[in-house]
Write a protein that binds this DNA or RNA. Sequence first.
DNA 1: CTGTTAGCGCATTCAC
DNA 2: GTGAATGCGCTAACAG
Lengths: 342, 342
Amino acid sequence: MRPTVHDIAASAGVSLATVDRVLNGRPGVRAATRARVDAAIATLGYVRDVAAANLAKGRLYPLTFILPDNDNSFMRGLAAEVEDAARRSPAERTVIRIERVPAFDVQALVSALDRVREQKPAGVAFVAVEAPEIVAAVRRLAGAGIPVVTLVSDLPGSDRAHYAGVDNIAAGRTAAGLLGRFVGPAPASLAVLAGSMLVRDHRERLDGFSGVIGAEFPWLTILPVMEGQDNSARSEALVADMLARHPGIAGLYSLGAGNRGLIAALTARGGGAPIRVVAHELTPHVRAALVSGLFDAVLNQDAGHEVRSAIRVLKAKADGVAPIEAQERIRIDIFLKDNLPA
Amino acid sequence: MRPTVHDIAASAGVSLATVDRVLNGRPGVRAATRARVDAAIATLGYVRDVAAANLAKGRLYPLTFILPDNDNSFMRGLAAEVEDAARRSPAERTVIRIERVPAFDVQALVSALDRVREQKPAGVAFVAVEAPEIVAAVRRLAGAGIPVVTLVSDLPGSDRAHYAGVDNIAAGRTAAGLLGRFVGPAPASLAVLAGSMLVRDHRERLDGFSGVIGAEFPWLTILPVMEGQDNSARSEALVADMLARHPGIAGLYSLGAGNRGLIAALTARGGGAPIRVVAHELTPHVRAALVSGLFDAVLNQDAGHEVRSAIRVLKAKADGVAPIEAQERIRIDIFLKDNLPA
DNA sequence: CTGTTAGCGCATTCAC
DNA sequence: GTGAATGCGCTAACAG
């Protein structure tokens, strides 16, 4: 049987209350007494029963998720996962609030972060936009003792406690490793379709991609990056134009959203030498393109994992305990048509 | 505030004990009374606090893992993950026992399963070997009300409650999708190194691989499968011989263990046309081969995920609740040198 | 068939 | 500074 507070109280010759004071580092215990209790804890190998402690405290974890009101498939899926988690809240003693902010709007995000801070939640998760004002807002939260987790897009150099998202440089490198092998050993050119070079994920993916192509596939040329603003119509026009002007394109890396437009342009093109395509995020349209053979591979981040991980980490931080590191690393999932999930 | 058993007792005009009987489906309650309680539960939107229930029950989950005493890297890693989980036991109310059995020994596994059944654990996880005797032993466990989870290798057609492992047919298909694209559009031959066609994982991987090569890369020929018995020396000899006799080999799929021998044979070969290699399980040797460029891609199953998933599922089954499906699907991780985990 | 009561392991009043 | 008593939400004897 595991030792309980009663056992250590008896063993140290003190009362439950004193044990509790020592356990929770509260004042009002003489150093000598504290030492006796600590000794008992150590020799008995006591470990506190967190569930019982939470029950006694009636502890809840109010967590706030700040999500952009973007309406692309990925963000909708992310929001759905948060709502799912909210549905499981009772069992996990969490109380999840969702705040919506306009996408890519630094001021709106700053005021959301400040507003949320007033609610004094046990933790905050948000999709970061990179700006000094945001770094400062996160610092204010951390200063108020509220742990912050960045979701999907990180904010390096800030006081965020954790990043629940993929390594985007590795993602770009991986895309290059795949595409470089797919197009073969003959000189050819590669097109890149991004959303915007202003967001960190996209920049990192491009950096990783360019680095590996340059170093390991030097016979391949990367054409000037198309910035489709994650918008389908714009992406379609850009890609159609690019395909018309560069018949030697053997591969294409789509590192942002707006894949509907890309698919349309590729479909319209019809014949010609095959173009190998690697894209991001397994949305329904992308999935269809994979199945039809239009896309060759898709790199995906599992929004459900990211959300559940963010919650686990925030709870752990709120309790002052360490999360299981290996469990919280978000993988880059690679899908071919052959390993699509049911 | 969430409604408690007291609230529904008051609302239904009965005592706590009756509420508890209804909640836990125990006998000794008149249908009419039961209905009143159910109604109260529904209208108040009661959800039971599992933590409190477990505390009251003093419930522990004795779980037994039966692992083969194989000493390849993967199985050692798996065992280490189980031991890690055992270390976290107190916090999760689990009591984890590990039983070792000789690898691939049906009789030993059967008697282990029967022996474990006598201990009446709350659940059993084991690496299946396919045999009717094993199916029968699992049936006996299920008959005794003990949920069984197969780990790494499944036992279809048995009463196992869940399979914590990857879809090996999909893995083989994925390997084919990668290798087929890697070797390019010219006729060539592919070599396959397996452990043994007697184990289900390996058969399934080969089936998936052959299917996709035949259907989508018909210009590629699969050479007769080499069976290295997951043994390095034997694998090395087989591969060296194969390479010497078939200079047209453009790709190799290693679907079992024994990769040390494969690496030795490939290294000894030296020059010649490049051979693209896809292998399984990210062990230290395989990782090094990936980094050096000898291997192109590795399919991996995360043993830590599998163990944690098995535990979650067994606890859920023991409680008679449904696990989060999406969380329990074990993915096929694909690694290139570009996305190796730290 | 139903109700009363005493805990599970811990935190928190309030006295001493 | 320290201790005794009470309750968190639920289960499990034991009475009736």
